[in-house]
Design a binder for these strands. Structure first.
Lengths: 168, 168
DNA sequence: TTTAACTTTCAAAATTTCATGAAAGTTTAT
DNA sequence: ATAAACTTTCATGAAATTTTGAAAGTTAAA
């Protein structure tokens, strides 16, 4: 396999993975493209390579910047903006974890905390089951939350070392 | 807040979380409903409670069964089928991890392994960047894979005890 | 074997999500 | 101040996904 073909496959695979995880396909593809590009790219180049419209490219790049996965670069003496992706996978993983935690885990923990407080007749099966499920899920969510927090603070090696201690 | 309202909120929240993670909203809602139901429910009851069609209920339940999150129950002397969800959050988490690993992580690792093998001119920046990103992501994916494998084998307590060691 | 209860399928409709591109906006150079 | 280079917005349409419900299929009792 040659590089251009491999590049295409990588972009396609990353796009598919993204869409399975609630990240839009194009966003994942633009990210993939920037990940394998040694130099920062312009909007034009991204549009060209991925065959997407200007509007789409612009919005997608903005999203990627909001996710903290891509940064703008200004080149001295040039009007155009260049975009590049952080290539450090550990940073990428942490950044994604951080965003999803903020956007998804935090809100659900808030709701679960509220629902944990609901009171009812402890002889009522419906109430008992509701309460048990909600508090159990709440506990799990909080464990996940703590683990993510640790991950966000951790150095890559330390984190995986800790994880792999579990194997011994 | 009273139980019925709380139940509704829980179903809504679980549905939203599901859709943010690539699981269809209805599927997550049916799962939520079964999680808070002390007894197994019929298709009719699920249709009624969530205001969904028979076809949708049927397909959704089949999916949940395929994910290993819901089981059928036959009641002696009855024609109808009843459905209930495993209420153990640890089992739920493991089951979801197991399915997603099989459906998503395994295929991407396969592709990354292939792409890691691509050869090229080590003086070519494009090749160098491609190669580094691909192999780095591959390593990360394999770490995640191993961690999931451990999690799947682990007993609940043992797993969380190990996680909490990380905090000390 | 017939019937009725119940389940499954699937083509069409509804909804949701995503991409487009022209127009509006912004910035910099002259 | 104007023009040119470049970026952003957003109404609209296209595509993908989800839902519906009626018809077909299945099963078990009579």
């Amino acid at each position: 396999m040659q590089l251009p073909e491999a590049k295409g496959k990588f972009i396609e695979a990353w796009g598919k993975l993204g869409s399975e995880w609630g990240i839009n396909r194009t966003m994942a593809q633009v990210h993939a493209l920037l990940l394998v590009s040694p130099a920062a790219l312009t909007t034009e180049e991204i549009m060209e390579e991925l065959k997407i419209s200007r509007g789409n490219a612009n919005m997608t790049l903005r999203d990627l910047i909001n996710w903290g996965l891509v940064e703008k670069q200004h080149k001295a003496g040039e009007r155009k903006e260049y975009f590049f992706a952080d290539k450090d996978t550990w940073n990428i993983a942490r950044q994604v974890a951080k965003e999803r935690r903020k956007r998804e885990l935090d809100p659900i923990i808030k709701i679960l905390d509220e629902l944990s407080k609901v009171e009812g007749d402890s002889k009522d099966e419906a109430f008992k089951t509701f309460n048990k499920s909600v508090t159990d899920i709440n506990k799990l969510a909080k464990n996940v939350d703590k683990t993510l927090e640790t991950m966000l603070k951790a150095e890559e090696n330390w984190f995986w070392k800790s994880i792999f201690k579990m194997f011994k």
